[in-house]
Amino acid sequence: MPSDKELSRHQQDEPADLAGDLAAYRPALGRRLAALRKECGYSREEAAGLIGVSSDTLRLYEEATWRPSMRRLVRITTLYRADPLGILQDIAQSVRPKKEHVFLPEVEALLYFCGVTPEQVVDRVDPAVEPEPGPLPGEAPLGEVLKYRRDDDPMRVQGGLMLRREYEAGASIRMLSTKHHLAFGTIRTLLVEANTRLRGPGSPHHGTA
């Protein structure tokens, strides 16, 4: 995730409306986190203790001084019984309600969380050249797609959500490990990061991945 200085430098080079989107995003995220906490009836100190951060850190998230990592955002939204991707989509839509989607809404939501507008990604491709479609989780083993990616990389998050759908459809972790060329422990980690409710040992599952 880019630092605040890097984000400010990018915003200076962007059209005013795109810079405005990014400038509006972080306060919107902070307000939503604060609203979710209050809706659940937690004081800031109570929520911070359950999440595993200091109350000052949670305050800085809610006041939009700091941005949480994706891993920490999942912990926060899990406590508040909210879907992290759904929250990010709502916030992204709130800062650009009248704009057409450049990518799938969930991908745009993850880009905004990382401090990038969809237009910034598109602008880095030569418009005179038809871009080659990159590897997507559905077209290549996740072991290849996610190699060397950071925990908060949008593609890693998207891969985890795809694994969650397959797991909830009945696939076992071992089936997913074989299919996607990833270690058993890595599959389990990605499922946990995607806020998946894991089945207990011996729980039934379907025979297809």
Rank of each mutant, 00 (worst) to 15 (best):
G20H: 06
E108Y: 05
H205D: 03
K98I: 13
R188S: 09
G138Y: 07
V157A: 05
G134C: 13
D153Y: 09
R32Q: 14
R165T: 14
Q93P: 01
P15S: 07
H206A: 11
T78E: 08
E100V: 12
Y42K: 02
H205G: 05
R199A: 05
R44P: 05
M175N: 02
R72G: 00
T178I: 15
G86R: 09
R72A: 04
E106S: 13
H101R: 15
S69F: 12
E45D: 12
V74S: 03
A24R: 13
P68S: 02
G207I: 08
S94C: 03
D83E: 11
E193I: 01
A171V: 07
R124F: 14
A24W: 05
E106V: 13
I51N: 00
T189P: 00
V107E: 11
R164E: 05
P141K: 03
Y25M: 03
P154H: 04
C40P: 06
A48C: 07
G170K: 06
E132R: 15
H10Q: 15
L33P: 01
A16I: 12
A171I: 10
S8L: 07
Y80C: 00
M155Q: 15
F103G: 04
T189N: 09
L33S: 04
G207A: 09
Y25G: 01
L111D: 08
I173Y: 02
H206L: 14
I187W: 00
